[in-house]
Design a protein around this nucleic acid. Structure first.
Lengths: 240, 240
DNA sequence: TGACACTAATGGTTTAACCATTATAATGTT
DNA sequence: AACATTATAATGGTTAAACCATTAGTGTCA
């Protein structure tokens, strides 16, 4: 932090403050993890009152650009740019019933199919080693039976996350994370499957990973879609 | 508005206020378009100070749940639930260079392909009439030459929006709107094409609409993907 | 009838004080 | 020396009261 920030202007002063700080963060002038000056210092820099400045900080916090901590060493810490707003928006759409579980599941089918196909085109040998490593962990948890269902689900999600990363387009990663987060937020309580479904799930993952490592894009897309579709059908049955 | 809202509690008072109002909006207890009480009245309801209450309103405004107007008849008006947060998040990801133009274009390819395929499965005769009506308008603007390029682009976007609606999944509509908004926000200035590209664009749209109305899902998906891909190539050339 | 000014409701901003939380330093105890 | 306890100070959270700025509606006047 050097000589940045000029006196706040415009009609709504807090908006000007938001704009200045947001630009500085998005342009990389302030590192993620670093701390903004204390509220009372920022007030002097922007020549504004504390109330107005705090309204600006509330907005930046809601945008998930900063995180505000209490106590000594508290203050506004700059966060990494992330996709939390998407997840939050999705949560609101679901809460308000503008988007249903069926919509969410169908959307996920389409996206995971596309992502699976791209991953098959772009997977390197290193990527495939990682996928097979994750698959081996999933196999161990599968053999552990229903007691390790939670662990299996976690690995399942790690595999999907890894495939999205391998697809090479961060937008897919952000959006799939939003979808996964919301599935967990709203529907976790309904999810419980038997050992048969667990086995089927594992076989799905194994087939998808094989297709990706064979660079068989069409198969990877089709298998991914089927895998997600089966999952969606389970959810629907549980919710009925 | 009846007897809702109890005294604000918890560590961060403004967060409790946000939660109460947000729930009321998302649960439909407060209609979109209606006005919340004035700040000073809300302060009494929540038994909080005006500064704290205003921090809560700032958050709700940033979530695009309310819109605050000035002057007489001003105040916090409840908005329809929408996908603006997604668009804003996407804008920040692009601004911070976490997502590039190429990523955005590739993502759009995948989504528009999926949407085109779904629309072909679900289009009714009424939908097809609407699409052909839009196509006729596009044809008129095409014949108007480059002078009506702006109008042509608007109809083009209307067609894509209509196809997303016909696909029957609002999530696709929200996300495609976010993508379109950001393409316009960041790349409009680079976009200018000649009459040949305009003609090609029109032929693309005509072919897509034909496929949709023939319920030829695979063709609609493939043509949509090609259409978007061609657009993406143009953008890349302009940016070079 | 139209232009202008007044009025009142409402959000925007400022100031100054005090409360709550927490990392660190100072102190005491074993 | 090691550990538990307490005090300190930095920082965000909250309150109160006053005043400024914007704007729809109303009233006045030419």
């Amino acid at each position: 932090m050097k000589k940045l920030f000029h006196k706040a202007q415009q009609k709504r002063v807090y908006q000007d403050v938001v704009n200045q700080i947001q630009e500085a963060i998005l342009d990389g002038e302030i590192e993620a993890g670093s701390k903004l000056p204390a509220e009372r210092s920022l007030c002097e820099m922007f020549q504004t009152s504390r109330g107005t400045l705090r309204e600006a900080l509330r907005i930046l916090e809601q945008k998930s650009l900063i995180e505000i901590r209490l106590g000594t060493n508290g203050g506004a810490y700059v966060r990494d740019v992330n996709g939390e707003l998407m997840a939050e928006n999705l949560a609101m759409l679901i809460h308000s019933k503008a988007v249903s579980l069926a919509h969410l599941a169908e959307f996920r089918e389409g996206v995971e199919a596309t992502v699976g196909g791209l991953a098959a085109q772009r997977a390197t040998s290193v990527d495939c080693e990682e996928l097979h490593g994750l698959l081996a962990r999933a196999e161990r948890f599968r053999d552990g039976g229903l007691e390790q269902w939670d662990s299996f689900v976690r690995v399942d999600e790690q595999i999907h996350t890894a495939i999205a990363r391998i697809a090479g387009n961060p937008l897919y990663s952000f959006i799939l994370k939003s979808v996964h987060d919301n599935i967990h937020r709203y529907y976790d309580k309904f999810l419980f499957v038997g050992s048969q479904e667990l086995e089927e799930n594992y076989q799905d993952l194994a087939a998808i990973i094989t297709a990706i490592c064979d660079h068989d894009s069409a198969a990877a897309a089709s298998l991914s879609k089927g895998h997600v579709h089966r999952f969606a059908v389970y959810m629907k049955e549980k919710l009925r």
